[in-house]
Amino acid sequence: MQRVNMIMAESPGLITICLLGYLLSAECTVFLDHENANKILNRPKRYNSGKLEEFVQGNLERECMEEKCSFEEAREVFENTERTTEFWKQYVDGDQCESNPCLNGGSCKDDINSYECWCPFGFEGKNCELDVTCNIKNGRCEQFCKNSADNKVVCSCTEGYRLAENQKSCEPAVPFPCGRVSVSQTSKLTRAETVFPDVDYVNSTEAETILDNITQSTQSFNDFTRVVGGEDAKPGQFPWQVVLNGKVDAFCGGSIVNEKWIVTAAHCVETGVKITVVAGEHNIEETEHTEQKRNVIRIIPHHNYNAAINKYNHDIALLELDEPLVLNSYVTPICIADKEYTNIFLKFGSGYVSGWGRVFHKGRSALVLQYLRVPLVDRATCLRSTKFTIYNNMFCAGFHEGGRDSCQGDSGGPHVTEVEGTSFLTGIISWGEECAMKGKYGIYTKVSRYVNWIKEKTKLT
């Protein structure tokens, strides 16, 4: 034993070699072989497995989906700052455009905790909710729209109204504003409101030439003092309507412009014939205590009207009353817009006519005020429907199939267009061939041609 100890002390290297040989010859039971080890760690190889990531292109799944990435790591994937920024906006807080917040056709661009709407022409605001041009839906104005110097929408209202708090709607500024039905039992019968379409306001006024200088022999019209197929109006439903009495009662109609003036057809009036105007009328054979009678003290036909040349060209006249009318729910003026808007309103496509005229061709006159909704007829169809001249200051309205029309005794009465609950004068009943005849239409004086003249002559002093 002493000898062994001496050998170990003198030859430590020998001992180490012996131990190493023993270990190498022993069977290893701690580690699995290569094949079995792979069965336990069965993990798919990654895209760049075996390579240094710093030297390969980034992978979106590896960089940002398996674990949260930084902007720089995302930049490695896209290799483009702009594309990385677009991805980053949604990656950080989701897609803010998912709810489609942009209105009126706006395009949404996502941002971090926010979004941006790219608005089409005519709109602005956070969600493109603000109209900035009158060309689109009248700028959301209830009545009139004008573009300011910086191309912003400025709404306005006709006389007797003021802008509401929203700067879009119009509200009454006087007790009985024009064009409004205020009798409670008839307010439910107000005709369907007309909503502004998209309009090209630059070209809204037709490029028409008034044929002022045409000389033409007097034409022989049949029954051209021209509501057939209409309905009984309720008291106060058309408070701007008046009836004219002269040699015979209810020979023509008219509309209240203001307390002192009536507008009617020029062919209705004769110099030297006494005319009485009755406002607030409903049943011409009954006294309903809503009527107001006034005498006409002055007749002003349009300066281009000449019955000797043509009885229905420039067929418009103004009547001055001896005493002002007292405005109330049964006696209310009709609204008159400017030339541009009167023309736009007419193009809405349908209007209402009213009167006490004959209820059928050569038949009896109506006792109760009649009204009828009539569609506008395109000019080409209008011209083809008659052998008589249709001037540019006239328009056609009615039904091709016949059966409904204005008729004798309705002449001078109103053709009105309702705009968001307020009625505007767009025409004056003038003439036609018979009444409600198939293929024939009622012919009306186009008020847009005469609004400046009306307003100039009827100013209240």
Rank of each mutant, 00 (worst) to 15 (best):
L460T: 06
T225W: 11
E320Q: 05
I112T: 13
H303S: 07
E288V: 06
K168E: 07
G179Y: 01
P239Q: 01
V4T: 12
E434Q: 12
D405V: 05
N135C: 03
M8N: 13
F176G: 02
C157S: 00
T461G: 07
F345V: 04
Y371K: 09
E456M: 09
G50I: 10
F348M: 14
I136T: 05
N258T: 05
S365Q: 15
R3A: 13
G179C: 01
N295S: 13
V419F: 13
N295F: 06
A192E: 11
V447A: 08
C69D: 05
P101Q: 03
S107I: 03
H34N: 14
S448I: 02
W356F: 11
E67Y: 06
N38H: 10
G122Y: 03
P101W: 02
H34I: 10
D33A: 11
E98C: 05
G355M: 04
N147M: 11
P301E: 06
N5K: 14
G413W: 10
E285L: 15
V199L: 07
Y444R: 01
E27N: 06
A164K: 09
G122P: 13
E27D: 13
F348V: 13
I214E: 13
Q185D: 14
D212Q: 13
F78D: 09
F87Y: 15
T264V: 05
A317F: 00
S107M: 07
L163E: 02
T389L: 10
T417Q: 03
N135F: 09
I299P: 02
Y341M: 13
A279K: 01
I454M: 05
C435I: 03
Q219F: 10
P172G: 07
L20H: 02
I316H: 01
I316V: 08
M65V: 13
D212W: 09
I309L: 09
E61A: 09
G421W: 02
T158L: 08
K457A: 10
N5Q: 12
K89L: 07
N42I: 10
S350L: 14
G351V: 01
K247W: 07
E142L: 04
I300W: 05
C396Q: 00
E53V: 08
E418Q: 12
Q167D: 09
C178S: 01
C28G: 11
C145Y: 02
S70M: 08
N100P: 01
G106D: 00
H289K: 13
S365Y: 11
K311F: 05
R43M: 12
G122I: 01
N393A: 05
E418A: 10
Q241L: 12
E67M: 08
R298L: 03
L460I: 07
E66S: 08
E72L: 10
N245Q: 08
S385V: 12
V326D: 12
C382F: 03
V447Y: 01
F176V: 08
N42P: 13
V243T: 10
T332M: 06
N328G: 07
G412L: 11
S184Q: 06
L319H: 01
S182Q: 07
N38T: 15
E285P: 12
A279L: 02
Y391M: 14
D111W: 05
L211I: 13
V377S: 03
Y305L: 02
S411G: 12
E259I: 05
Q408E: 14
D111F: 11
L325M: 03
D322A: 06
D378N: 10
D223W: 08
C18D: 02
S204F: 15
F251P: 06
A207M: 13
G230A: 15
L163W: 02
R62Y: 06
S99Y: 07
C141I: 01
H400W: 09
D322G: 06
Q241T: 14
T445G: 02
E434Y: 11
N452F: 04
G58S: 13
N213P: 14
T271M: 10
N151T: 10
K126E: 09
N203F: 06
P301G: 04
K293T: 14
D338T: 11
G421V: 03
T276F: 05
W240H: 02
Y305K: 02
E456L: 07
E291D: 04
E285Q: 13
M6H: 08
Y161G: 01
Y161S: 01
A279F: 02
Q241W: 07
F424Y: 10
E72A: 15
R83Q: 14
G402V: 15
V154K: 13
G363N: 05
Y391N: 15
M437H: 10
S365H: 14
H302M: 02
S385I: 11
K260P: 00
A265S: 10
G413P: 01
F78Y: 15
F251Y: 11
T81F: 06
C102D: 00
D405R: 12
R384Q: 15
V263C: 03
D198C: 06
P120Y: 03
V277T: 03
T342Y: 02
A26N: 03
T287S: 14
A233V: 07
G229M: 12
K293Q: 10
T332I: 08
V416L: 05
A37M: 12
A233K: 05
E53H: 08
K260A: 04
C134W: 03
I17C: 06
Q96H: 14
N313H: 13
N310T: 07
T218P: 14
D232V: 06
Q237R: 05
Q57D: 15
N36E: 11
E323Y: 07
A250H: 12
D200G: 13
Q143S: 01
T29L: 14
V353L: 05
Q370G: 08
R180I: 04
P375E: 04
G105H: 07
C18P: 02
T190C: 05
F71I: 14
C119E: 00
G413C: 09
C119W: 00
G421N: 10
S217V: 14
I454R: 00
C141P: 00
M6G: 11
A307K: 11
N151A: 08
K39G: 12
S220N: 12
C178A: 00
Y305W: 11
K168F: 15
